[in-house]
Design a protein around this nucleic acid. Structure first.
Lengths: 206, 206
DNA sequence: GAATTTTCGACCGGAATATTCGAATAGATT
DNA sequence: AATCTATTCGAATATTCCGGTCGAAAATTC
């Protein structure tokens, strides 16, 4: 029996297809994170999946599309981790602390996401610009929310939450730069603490 | 005045040449250790040295020769660290402990050496087989020496030092395998301790 | 057993990249 | 200064690599 309308039907094939796409994303993500986009070959990804590389093209159009999926995947992980991290505590100060720490700690684990955002060699990907903008906006919203709640609870003293949020975001990005260039150590911890201190000292109502 | 015999004269050039070779080895070693032999390009090495890549060929015949030099370099580091580690203590038990620990700890730092020995993709290098054999023999000699001294001091109870040394060496190699495949964690520490316990329990005179 | 989905090996063309070469420069020697 | 040697470099070459294609085989579903 021929299908009348493909888009309304779901076969077993399609289910497994999504499942397999996820597998590819995970495998590829690990390899990308180690070698970077350019130095990762389709053969390697295929080998990790125990397949011929041509099979992968049945699920993805190109290496680029795989990378895009990986970055999206990691971006979502980051978003989830951040939201749960700020939900897990009550006080605005802790929320802010958690947010900042989780964000910085994720840097190594989600290296594809951050590479996509920072690496100049990856500029030619259109989706990167989109993702960057989108997540910048989201981050700003979260920061503003934290600040807003802090202000409501009389813990923060914020005049303009939007600009304050932007300032914090800028600082966080500044922190990321050395992490991107020198993957190792750069004892971010201490700098983070210092920045948080400064941040709170200027923000917390006395 | 033309030189009569080159091999008897030393010019300033030659000194700097050796110096520069070392620089290349260090730079290349870092890049190799991150990306592996194949994925490291001459351009990258050259860039790290702030030179044109063709200049490197004035000091080394080929990328392969650089890699060989790197591996040799690291192998010597390992040898030195091991010998000083066993010299730094007196008791045979401590010597053995130090030897085993230092050897295992070096795995990450000297990844080129270990890659050369393990990586199947590097099989075609002739020098690897040589180096592997040579250092296996050296290691065996050291282990035998430790065992021998331990026996003299009535601390170890070894019937045949050669075979015992070989057994220990085999164990150590077995420990290396998971390190090679999964670069991270694999908490070797605990396994090491366990192995040392077993080793000493069977070896130490009661 | 027909239709559809999925896998795969062989192949292509262009890009990347190791290596060469000769010329230009810097440094040493007379 | 002039000459010779050592060193650097850019451009060219030759080769390998690698993303992607294609059609056919295998597996799965109907």
């Amino acid at each position: 029996m021929p299908r009348r309308n493909k888009s309304f039907e779901t076969t077993n094939y399609m289910i497994n297809k999504e499942e397999f796409r996820r597998k590819v994303i995970v495998s590829a993500g690990e390899i990308f994170s180690h070698y970077g986009f350019k130095k990762t070959t389709m053969d390697e990804i295929a080998k990790d999946l125990k397949m011929g590389k041509s099979s992968i093209y049945y699920y993805f159009e190109s290496k680029e599309e795989i990378f895009e999926a990986v970055v999206l995947y990691e971006a979502n992980i980051l978003r989830n981790e951040l939201t749960t991290a700020i939900k897990s505590v009550e006080s605005p100060i802790d929320k802010m602390k958690n947010y900042v720490f989780v964000r910085m700690k994720s840097f190594e684990k989600l290296s594809n996401y951050y590479n996509a955002i920072f690496d100049k060699n990856l500029d030619h990907f259109d989706f990167i610009e989109n993702i960057r903008e989108k997540y910048d906006r989201e981050e700003l919203a979260i920061l503003r929310l934290i600040l807003y709640h802090g202000a409501r609870k009389k813990v923060f003293n914020v005049v303009n939450s939007e600009y304050t949020a932007m300032a914090i975001q800028t600082t966080l990005k500044g922190l990321e730069v050395p992490l991107f260039w020198k993957k190792k150590e750069v004892n971010i911890e201490n700098r983070l603490r210092a920045i948080l201190d400064v941040l709170f000292y200027g923000i917390v109502k006395k």
